[in-house]
Design a binder for these strands. Structure first.
Length: 801
RNA sequence: GCCGGUGUGUUGGAAUUGGCAGACGAGACGGACUCAAAAUCCGUUGUCAGCGAUGGCGUGUGGGUUCGAGUCCCACCACCGGCACCA
């Protein structure tokens, strides 16, 4: 027989709405805990069963922390700007704001039905002008500090969204969002100089408690490498500057390659004798998308620049210069020295163009292939470097280059600046105007928020302009500086803008003087525990660290990093083990689960499904186990009797408190639940439960299943509310058992089991093991070679015939 | 190609980090209750051999280290995620 979860859950949700027990206090003298989950994009489909997994996990943490006496901030809001809403609005001829409001209403009802302990008084919405006022304000600060600039450049253009994408949004050559082809397009774009922070974004990872795979992925994305910048003189008098991570191989540089877009080519036009060929190659390269360029990586192409040569500064030899699209303009200096003997790409190119290959590190067979994995090799054919190890040569050459003034040590990053413009309607307007006289001029801060105007059509344009560009009334304005006629920026910000600082707003969400008060920021920051998806590691997570560091530099926030701890959950897959999606038809709606089993069962199952960090398939029949467990918990009320913890149950209770407490900290929610199930089974075996035992049991279970446990608390007549009580303590001394079962192994195979006192001495344990009949039988007349005793675990007797 | 991760019964997954593999669930089978079914309760459930006590074999594959390996080392296979001509 099932308890009436529908009635109980509704009852407590109403009570929580009324009593607001989860609203955090503004008493800044209390110890604080800031638990954060990524706020959702309120899509038209509503919540799916993947959302509640991280929310439940941190809800458990937040509820536990409150019981431990912390002032807990556990907020929720809406990351509501974005394309799907805009597309829906276009299709159905409704204003995106209206669509957003509807979707939020649905999401909020669904979240409330799951009993999350969010502080709803701090709800935020990125599309609210009182919110995006501050997003715009931060942009103005970036602009004023030279970190936002407009640049004409080749960008990623999604052919379907008709919109520019950031590098981070292009996945495998296609649009991350819609999967359509991405092409190169030259456009004037707002850019944010995240590259200025590359070094700090890498270095500061060391101080943070992020899970390793997040750190690794961010490090790889930022891509720091250490090498040298070297000047190669040319026949034109200009130096051709290259970046290399292998300055030790400089003697082996037998030719040079510049990117097709390299600016020196234009300078050399007059001297280049095969300009037609060069131009043809440039044209071809320009028409390839990035994807096509990398597709063709098996076959190197290129053209020699005739009429211009360079000189290897160490060998003094004249060497040819090529253009080839295997060299990228956007990395390093856009030019390389080619060392075919020790670089696979250079090797292929040299073979194809019959260029000399000079071995400078001994150990490989350069007749067959480039010798790249040569850290342990010895230098040859390298003048004063001969005989050195690669490592020694690196130091020696850099010293030499610096002394002679022809090069220097240099650190490079793969990270590029952030393309910040989007040619769409449903985003934050960029608060900049363009004046023919004054250039790009920021709006005065008093003019914020610059509100998104109503337009007739949200349809993106084919010419690559934002729908806002049609709003002549809005676009035409006056220059804040000279008062002359000027035009507003019509591109909007990317979706990542609002989410780059939202966690700051939660600390003081209604402030209209600042993005948040310094006192609130000082108290609440940094976020103590932030959980979110791996897919945001090189997007939202990196962007928000960048903005935060900038805000720290200008004195707005008190900490150099926004989040102290970052964890990530695994995805919930469909029953067939595939990613849940509408097109695969394997989407599970949480509303159905709540209706059939209740929110508490749903929460419990989401946590019991498996390792929190790994993805797991949804299995509807497995939910039954969680449902039965809660039923049995409820039925336990009928076994209730007066009294403290029974002596024979003491160890079990203390161990369970210990296990559940620790497992929550380690995100091992599944084993925490298993421990509670084991305890419940044991209680059922005794057919009774004392009030004190029951109190502990439902307190431990409360963060997982808050409704039914609160109800049971009330039914028992315990004072106040369960969520206001304190987390149970355990006594380590009572966790240890006084007798333990140890295994007796002979040559590594278990042959007997013994009950012994937990503190038995090694000698006694071994003696007891040897006295055992079965052991004697197995030992027969073999010679005991060795005896091993592992305290409380086993005795292993090694014997030979 | 590079970086990261995973591989355990029929099934989702445990295993104190080198110490009794399979906790806790699901499913299946047997039984109780029931006119019957559902629900609930009790029992069995890695695999092979044996009536049995018991024994052999078992954590993707092949080697190794160790008294002892799911766990450590070497080589390989499969799958998943990220990056990808980054000099």
């Amino acid at each position: 027989m099932s308890y009436n979860f529908a009635q109980i859950e509704k009852k407590w949700q109403d009570i929580w709405d009324q009593e607001q027990p989860f609203a955090c206090s503004d008493d800044y003298t209390k110890p604080k805990y800031y638990a954060l989950v990524e706020f959702p994009y309120p899509s038209g489909q509503g919540l799916h069963v993947g959302h509640p997994r991280p929310y439940t996990a941190l809800d458990i943490v937040a509820r536990k922390r409150r019981m431990q006496g912390y002032n807990v901030l556990f907020p929720m809001g809406w990351d509501a700007f974005g394309l799907p809403t805009e597309n829906y609005a276009i299709k159905n001829h409704v204003h995106p704001a209206q669509v957003t409001a509807q979707n939020i209403k649905r999401f909020k009802a669904q979240l409330k039905a799951l009993g999350f302990s969010f502080d709803w008084s701090r709800e935020i919405n990125t599309t609210d002008p009182s919110y995006y006022k501050w997003t715009q304000w931060i942009f103005l600060q970036l602009f004023k500090h030279g970190l936002a600039y407009k640049a004409e450049m080749a960008v990623n253009w999604c052919t379907s969204c008709k919109c520019v994408l950031a590098n981070e949004e292009v996945v495998g050559g296609v649009c991350e969002r819609c999967g359509s082809e991405v092409v190169r397009k030259t456009k004037s774009q707002w850019m944010l100089k995240i590259t200025d922070y590359a070094q700090r974004l890498v270095d500061d990872l060391d101080k943070l408690d992020f899970i390793d795979r997040v750190k690794t992925q961010q490090r790889n994305w930022i891509g720091r490498s250490t090498g040298a910048q070297v000047k190669f003189p040319t026949s034109q008098g200009d130096d051709l500057v290259v970046y290399t991570t292998r300055p030790d191989t400089l003697f082996g540089a037998t030719y040079m390659v510049v990117a097709p877009e390299h600016p020196l080519i234009e300078k050399w036009v007059g001297s280049i004798t095969n300009m037609d060929d060069v131009r043809a190659y440039q044209q071809k390269a320009a028409h390839k998308s990035d994807f096509e360029r990398t597709e063709l990586n098996k076959d190197k192409t290129g053209v020699q620049i005739k009429g211009v040569t360079a000189v290897n500064p160490l060998t003094g030899k004249e060497i040819p210069i090529f253009i080839s699209d295997y060299v990228l303009v956007s990395y390093g200096t856009g030019a390389i020295m080619a060392v075919p003997a020790h670089d696979t790409r250079d090797y292929e190119f040299a073979k194809k163009f019959h260029l000399p290959i000079v071995e400078v590190v001994q150990g490989g067979d350069i007749e067959k292939q480039a010798f790249t994995d040569c850290d342990t090799g010895i230098m040859i054919n390298s003048g004063f470097l001969n005989g050195m190890t690669v490592e020694q040569a690196k130091e020696a050459i850099i010293q030499y280059l610096e002394e002679k003034g022809i090069g220097a040590k240099k650190v490079n990053f793969k990270l590029r600046d952030w393309v910040f413009s989007r040619q769409r309607y449903w985003g934050e307007p960029i608060p900049i105007v363009h004046c023919d006289k004054c250039g790009y001029v920021p709006l005065d801060e008093s003019q914020l928020p610059l509100v998104l105007p109503d337009v007739k059509s949200y349809e993106p344009t084919d010419n690559g302009e934002s729908p806002l560009a049609h709003m002549e009334d809005w676009v035409q304005t006056t220059c804040p500086k000279c008062g002359g006629p000027a035009r507003r920026e019509t591109d909007t910000m990317p979706q990542w803008a609002g989410s780059s600082w939202y966690f700051l707003r939660y600390t003081d969400p209604h402030n209209d003087q600042a993005l948040a008060s310094p006192a609130a920021l000082k108290y609440w920051l940094p976020v103590d525990w932030y959980n979110g998806g791996m897919e945001h590691t090189t997007l939202h997570l990196l962007y928000s660290r960048f903005w935060h560091k900038f805000l720290y530099d200008i004195g707005v926030v008190p900490t150099p990093e926004p989040y102290q701890k970052r964890t990530s959950h695994g995805m919930i897959l469909g029953e067939n083990g595939e990613k849940m999606s509408k097109s695969r038809g394997n989407v599970v709606n949480p509303d159905d689960v709540v209706r059939e089993y209740g929110a508490d069962t749903m929460r419990l199952y989401e946590m019991f499904i498996g390792d929190f960090e790994k993805s797991a398939p949804w299995n509807p029949s497995s939910i039954k186990g969680c449902s039965r467990f809660l039923d049995r918990t409820y039925q336990m009320f009928d076994m209730l009797c007066e009294g403290q913890i029974r002596p024979e149950m003491e160890g079990d209770f203390h161990r369970t408190i210990q296990k559940v407490s620790q497992d929550i900290e380690d995100m091992k929610f599944n084993t925490a639940i298993a421990a509670m199930m084991t305890l419940l089974n044991k209680i059922y075996d005794t057919k009774s439960v004392t009030r004190e035992e029951f109190k502990i049991f439902i307190t431990l279970l409360n963060p997982f299943a808050p409704h039914v446990t609160e109800e049971l608390w009330e039914m028992c007549g315990f004072p106040g509310r369960l969520n206001q009580t304190s987390w149970p303590e355990y006594d380590p001394a009572k966790c240890v058992e006084n007798t333990v079962e140890i295994a007796v192994m002979i040559n590594g195979k278990v042959r007997a089991k013994l009950q012994v006192a937990a503190d038995i001495s090694e000698q006694d344990a071994i003696a007891a093991a040897k006295a055992n009949d079965r052991v004697q039988e197995f030992l027969g007349n073999m010679n005991v070679v060795k005896e091993i005793y592992v305290k409380g675990k086993l005795v292993n007797i090694v014997a030979k015939p």
